[in-house]
Amino acid sequence: MPGLLRIIIQRLLLGLVTLFVVSIIIFTAVNLLPGDFAQAILGQGATDEAVAAIREELGLNKHPVLRYLEWLGGAVQGDLGTSMSQALFSSFTGSETGSGLGSVAEQIAPRFRNTMFLASVTAAIAVPISIILGILTALYRNSAFDRSMNIFTLSSISSPEFFLAYVLILFLAVMNPIFPSLSNIYEGMPFGDRLEKTMLPALTLTLAVTAQMMRMTRAAIINLLASPYIEMARLKGLSPMRVIIKHALPNALAPIINVVALNLAYLITGVVVVEVVFVYPGIGQLFVDSVKIRDIPVVQACCLIFAAAYILLNLLADILSIISNPRLRHPK
């Protein structure tokens, strides 16, 4: 399908433009915040000279546009810059800046891996559960099962994540010590241990994202049940389960795929609270900390990762939607 390839290329180019716009917005927004890195790191008692010295050291006294262009110049060459806190640390200890731990990429990489691990574990639990529940609630629509599932998932999506997290800790770590309540994973940890430590945050997130995916699956299927081909399938004497799985589901895939993609993007970008509760070393915490100290290179890099996650997942969803449509897969 040459058409599909063109769509992919177009969307990727558009994605690059989006990333560029995002970087400008983030840079401007962080600059608009009161105070800068130097003031944040030195605190209230800092002398003007000390602040000025750090600004000089890190190039913060240059014009913002110039600083942005310098960053952009590095970024297009794959150099996301140096974390200011690391750079400052290195300059005090006399080591070279821009090497070792100082680079943003090296600082973010392990955090990003952890976040991806948590997102993958959650997706592996939440997506199948949501879709199966969606199918079952569509099949037994308006039954007691359907209503109780709807109430349960809606209550869980309506509760704050930290609350869900503490409830799970209470039941699965304190009262029944099945999983550890601290998720302090580290590099080189065996996969089994890692999985065990990740379980509680993953379950919390599952509760947070299931409702939307399940309800979309249910709604997309029910939406189709009035269509003539479903009536035809029923008039062929097929079982209700077969009607739904074989005849309704394949035509309901596009909206389901889209909502799954949105929720997966959320798992990568929106899990700060859960990370904090379980002390999980993911990218969300790093992001929040960096904003606090106005460490612009790190904030920029995190935001670009978040934006890229949204763009790529949405692109993937669109491609899968196209592939799931026989009209587009088999043109006349």
Binding site: S227, P228, Y229, E231, M232, A233, L235, K236, K246, H247, P250, N251, P326, R327
Partner: peptide, 14 residues
């Protein structure tokens, strides 16, 4: 059963 609109009554996915 044979429906009015075959175009709508055949499942587009199969």
């Amino acid at each position: 059963y044979v429906a009015q609109s075959a175009a709508a009554s055949f499942n587009p996915a199969h």
